[in-house]
């Protein structure tokens, strides 16, 4: 009679095996990169690939301080991503509040416009930006890069923030008005503290996207502004087979986003699923 029970246990075991195999597919490339980054360059080229070897930290040392140092690129990425994030939040949060809560002329039109700008393919922007920035002499400049990064961060941030703003109960604002707070005071003292979580999620997304950006960076940057993504790409184009060093450098370059990803995993999933899980009634 407990055959029902045995079947359930057997099913669970099969499930675990299938799931673990799939898990491996997603972990493996990263795991392998970690392993390769600890090999010496000659060990790397062993075929079939060796699993047992003497790990070395030399690749990491080289990637940071050696001939292939990516330190300056890391610094560039930090500046660009941070500045983009700050500017985006400053512009997006007030706008999102107005979209979510206030009477606003042409609200629908502006909302649709914001959404439409989010759809613009980056290739359609990098071409005119190259021509424009070339003309005004702003290629390979931090200012130019940050302005360009607003094109993908700002529309996204506004929409993400709108969905968080919509969740605040109306009573909050009404109570603040009764307490004679001005509109600006209400926004600053009541609304913004309420959406701190949403702001944090937005910051994470904008920062990640800015850090990972490649297309604008490779074409509009240069010797002065060279984010890590471009440095990685150049590494492979120039140093065709120094793959252990590439792995070490890439892992260092991706360390910030991976750490953020793991720590803020819950918030990121929430941000990804805003709208989708709620039934998609808005936007």
């Amino acid at each position: 009679m407990s055959s029902y029970r045995r079947a359930a246990t057997r099913r669970n075991i099969v499930l675990m095996i299938v799931a673990s195999t799939l898990l491996l597919i997603w972990v493996f490339p990263l795991l392998w990169a970690v392993i390769v980054s600890l090999k010496s360059e000659s060990e790397v080229l062993a075929y079939p690939p060796s699993v047992f070897f003497e790990p070395t930290g030399k690749n990491y040392a080289d990637a940071l301080f050696g001939d292939f140092s990516i330190l300056s690129s890391l610094w560039t990425s930090t500046i660009v991503a941070t500045a983009t994030t700050v500017l985006t939040i400053v512009l997006a949060v007030p706008a999102a509040y107005a979209f979510a809560r206030l009477r606003l002329p042409a609200k629908k039109t502006m909302g649709f416009y914001t959404l439409a700008t989010q759809m613009v393919p980056p290739v359609g922007l990098v071409i005119p930006y190259f021509l424009i920035l070339n003309k005004v002499g702003m290629l390979d400049s931090y200012e130019g890069m940050i302005i360009v990064y607003l094109t993908f961060s700002l529309p996204f941030a506004i929409w993400l923030m709108v969905s968080y703003m919509e969740d605040i109960p109306f009573e909050m604002e009404e109570a603040a008005f009764l307490d004679k707070a001005s509109r600006l005071q209400t926004l600053w003292h009541i609304i913004i503290p309420q959406v701190r979580g949403g702001i944090a999620v937005t910051v994470i997304f904008v920062f990640l996207n800015a850090w990972n950006e490649f297309l604008f960076a490779v074409q509009l940057g240069g010797n002065n502004v060279r984010p890590v993504t471009v440095a990685m790409y150049n590494f492979v184009s120039v140093e065709q087979t120094l793959w252990a060093k590439l792995s070490a450098a890439a892992l260092i370059a991706m360390l910030p986003v991976v750490v953020i990803g793991i720590i803020a995993q819950k918030q990121i999933v929430k941000g990804l699923t805003v709208g989708a899980v709620k039934g998609g009634g808005r936007r």
């Binding site: 972990v27 490339p29 790409y233 590439l246 991706m254 990803g261 793991i262």
Partner: peptide, 30 residues
């Protein structure tokens, strides 16, 4: 565990993903 693992590819820069696959995963004889 699955949630953590799933977040990793998402946060990686696509250019790095492309490079990893080009070298570590798909390169002939490597």
């Amino acid at each position: 565990i699955f949630r953590i693992v799933a977040i990793l590819p998402i946060v990686l820069a696509p250019v790095v993903v492309g490079l990893f696959w080009r070298t570590l995963m798909l390169a002939p004889n490597f």
